[in-house]
């Protein structure tokens, strides 16, 4: 079956294959699985960044509470997540947290939960820094006009902060896509899961892992291209 592919794709591949031993035929065989895995990677990343954004906003706002007792849990959460390896977090969520709620564990659910909880902490820091980067005078001006704290946040502070948050949030999204590869260890059928299966089945190294690297690179490169586009558009949208 592999030989058919080679003759189809012509002499060049055949030469490369024979001189380097690189098995394009095996990549062809695994292609449908890689594509399925790519959809999983995109899916869990989108879910996780969405949940992470919502959680992160609340945690970030929680960190900004003046009362030290009230802000402590939020700060502790961020410190814990940032201070422990994501690998450990995945295993805790997969084998510890999810079974408590579902009775049994589920790789995809555990993967999304772990990625969301992890990115929420980093996103919270981005929100906190973004909000704090806005000049104090903006809040004072809004309050002096009679706005409540919530109104000032919503109409004055957050719109300005969001714009500054877009580049770091983009970085976080890219990091999240890459980190999602670790969910392979809890059998989430994403890109790395199939790469490892490939490796296990044929004892090949370069084919599966280079393939995985190329797919991840295409994903993150496309994303960073889109983000830089978005940044430029927002920059010209209004002049501030």
């Amino acid at each position: 079956m592999g030989d058919e592919m080679l003759t189809l794709s012509g002499g060049l591949l055949e030469k490369m294959a024979s001189s380097t031993g690189f098995r394009f035929d095996l990549i062809g065989e695994y292609m449908p699985l890689f594509l399925k895995g790519t959809l999983y990677t995109i899916g869990i990343s989108l879910f996780s960044i969405f949940i992470g954004l919502i959680l992160g906003l609340f945690i970030g706002l929680g960190e900004l509470i003046r009362n030290k007792l009230l802000s402590f849990p939020f700060k502790a959460y961020v410190a814990f997540i940032r201070g422990t390896p994501f690998f450990v977090q995945i295993l805790i969520v997969h084998f510890g947290v999810i079974p408590i709620f579902l009775g049994t564990t589920n790789g995809v659910v555990a993967g999304i939960v772990a990625l969301s909880l992890n990115s929420a902490a980093y996103i919270a820091e981005i929100f906190r820094a973004g909000i704090q980067s806005i000049d104090r005078g903006q809040m004072e001006a809004a309050r002096s006009l009679g706005m409540t704290h919530a109104q000032a946040m919503r109409y004055v502070i957050l719109p300005q902060a969001f714009k500054r948050m877009i580049p770091p949030l983009g970085n976080e999204f890219i990091t999240l896509i890459k980190e999602s590869s670790l969910t392979a260890v809890i059998a989430v059928p994403e890109i790395m899961y199939w790469a490892r299966a490939f490796n296990g089945e044929y004892y090949r190294v370069w084919e599966p892992y280079l393939m995985a690297a190329v797919i991840y690179f295409i994903l993150t490169f496309t994303l960073s291209y889109l983000l830089s586009h978005l940044e430029k558009r927002l920059a010209t949208d209004d002049q501030s």
Partner: peptide, 18 residues
């Protein structure tokens, strides 16, 4: 409610840049 009736002008203007 009080602040709504007391206007304030700042040294640094503090206009909303967005």
């Amino acid at each position: 409610k009080i602040r709504a009736e007391v206007g304030m002008v700042f040294q640094q203007f503090n206009l909303f840049p967005h």
